[in-house]
Each structure stands twice: as structure tokens, then as C-alpha cells.
């Protein structure tokens, strides 16, 4: 089936608009720096930054650091998922548990993850365990909340239907409740994946744990401004890649969902 009302113009427009906005942003960056609005000392030109990034990409060190950041991110997000989804199902499916844990959750949730860094220096120390903990802590909350809402939003008619056919509680959980909450969990994952990256990088930057953040810290202390910006851009690209992967997963998981169906009639 072709896209509804799919003229070439409407199909091209989003791509063209995106390319234009990126080009405009890069041009502005270049101009601000070149015309001295902000000195090149503080903000290297766009072209300089990308040249720096390109030359960094030729080094083994860069890729090793990128690998470490990705590892910290992945383990943190994985840990958060393994904990948040089952706990979310539990708290979402029982009114009693939901009420009982509301206060502790609302107490812990607003704590800025970065506020835990001093505690981590004292407890887990400056190693990957702290990075994973921080990333997991940040990613845990959006996933937990999304899972809880997903489970609560299961259609009572669907549950009654399964019950009327003698489908037991456990089978109801994985045949009705879970598939029905998948859209919520997928959205939670997409949000959590960005949060986990930010926190993995933060841990490296402030705690000196090996990774892109640590290299940036070192570059900053040596006054290598070009490198600092190149690393910021590299992290941005990493975030973009993660976003693309997770929104693809989300779209797949939602194939059946009304928001993703080709509009009929």
C-alpha cells in the first residue's frame, strides 16, 4: 500500500526540511566563530571542530573510549530494564503495591542523578561500577513509570475476555498484559536510553572513569578546546545513533498500535 496522499513533494519535505535545518545550524556556527561574535579561542569554527573529530577518529584511543562509553551505557540501561520492567509490572498490577510505594518512589525520583556522584566516590569508587550505577539509576525511573502506566492501561474488556476463557493469571500476564504494555515500555526505553547515555558520560567526565567523558576532561584541563568540541559532537552523534535504533525498535513494537497503522478510509 502506498502512503496516503503520497505526492513526491510531501514525501520529500521532511527530509529536505531536516537537511536545511542542519545546514542552517552549521552555517550559523561557522559564522559566529569566524566573524568573532564568540572568539575562536572559546568556540572553534565548525570546520575546525569537524577536522579535529576526523583526525581523532584515526586514533585507536578514540574508538577504545567510545567503546567504553557504549559499554557503560549498555550495561546501565540493561540493568535498569531488568529491574524496572518487573517492578513496574508488580506495582502497576496491584493497587495496594502501587499505593504503598508511591511515596518512596516520588522521593527518590526527583533526586538529580549527578547528586549521587559524591556518594559514589565514597562507595563504589572511580570505576565502571559507578558509571553503570549512575546510568541505571537515571534510566530506571522513566522505564518504571512507563511500565506501571502501561500495565494499568490494559483494557479491562481484554482481561475479562481472557478470564472468561479460563486463561490463568500467569498466561494472562504474558498474553494480554505484557503485549498491551509494550508500546509504553518501548517509549520508556527510548527515553531511558538517552538518559543513560547522558549519565554514563557524566560519570566519566566527573569521576575520571575511562571513556569519552574522561578524554574530554583531560582535553579541557590541557586547554585543547578543539578536542573538547569534537568530543561533544561525537557524543551527539552517538546519541543520534541510539535514538535512531530505539525509535526503530519502538515503531516495530507498535506495528499493531493505532498510532502506527496506515490511515484507512
Amino acid at each position: 500500500m502506498s502512503a496516503p496522499g503520497g505526492g513526491i513533494v510531501t514525501r520529500l519535505t521532511p527530509g529536505v526540511a531536516a537537511a536545511a535545518s542542519i545546514a542552517a545550524f552549521l552555517a550559523l556556527w561557522q559564522a559566529v566563530s569566524r566573524f568573532g561574535v564568540i572568539s575562536e579561542q572559546d568556540l572553534p569554527a565548525m570546520t575546525t571542530t569537524f577536522r579535529e573529530l576526523w583526525s581523532m577518529m584515526q586514533t585507536q584511543e578514540f574508538w577504545a573510549a567510545l567503546g567504553r562509553t557504549v559499554r557503560g551505557w549498555a550495561l546501565g540501561l540493561g540493568l535498569a530494564t531488568v529491574l524496572a520492567v518487573p517492578i513496574g509490572i508488580l506495582l502497576g498490577s496491584s493497587d495496594f503495591a502501587g499505593r504503598a510505594f508511591r511515596v518512596p518512589i516520588e522521593f527518590l525520583r526527583p533526586i538529580p542523578s549527578a547528586a549521587l556522584i559524591p556518594l559514589l566516590f565514597l562507595t563504589l569508587g572511580t570505576n565502571i561500577r559507578s558509571e553503570i550505577f549512575l546510568a541505571a539509576f537515571g534510566a530506571f525511573w522513566p522505564l518504571l513509570i512507563q511500565t506501571m502506566y502501561g500495565v494499568r492501561d490494559v483494557d479491562p474488556v481484554a482481561i475479562d475476555t481472557a478470564r472468561s476463557f479460563g486463561v490463568g493469571p500467569l498466561e494472562r500476564l504474558y498474553r494480554v498484559t505484557l503485549p498491551s504494555s509494550v508500546p509504553y515500555i518501548a517509549t520508556g526505553l527510548r527515553i531511558a536510553s538517552a538518559v543513560a547515555l547522558i549519565l554514563a558520560f557524566t560519570a566519566e567526565l566527573f569521576m575520571g572513569i575511562p571513556g569519552l567523558g574522561q578524554i574530554m576532561n583531560v582535553a579541557e584541563s590541557f586547554g585543547l578546546t578543539n578536542q573538547v568540541y569534537a568530543l561533544a559532537v561525537a557524543t551527539g552523534f552517538l546519541g543520534l545513533a541510539i535514538y535512531v535504533v530505539f525509535s526503530t525498535i519502538e515503531r516495530r513494537a507498535l506495528r499493531w498500535h493505532p498510532s502506527q497503522r496506515p490511515s484507512s478510509a
Binding site: D160, W256, H257
Partner: peptide, 20 residues
């Protein structure tokens, strides 16, 4: 509890069928 010899058909077919 729902007996094996009974089957229910609900008015809200859109909500009673699993869309996934």
C-alpha cells in the same frame, strides 16, 4: 469462576480482540 463449558462474546469486539 468462568466454567469451561461457557464462552462469552462481548459487545466491544474492538476491545475484546487482541490487536497485536
Amino acid at each position: 469462576s468462568p466454567p469451561e463449558e461457557m464462552a462469552l462474546v462481548f459487545q466491544e469486539y474492538g476491545r475484546s480482540l487482541m490487536p497485536w
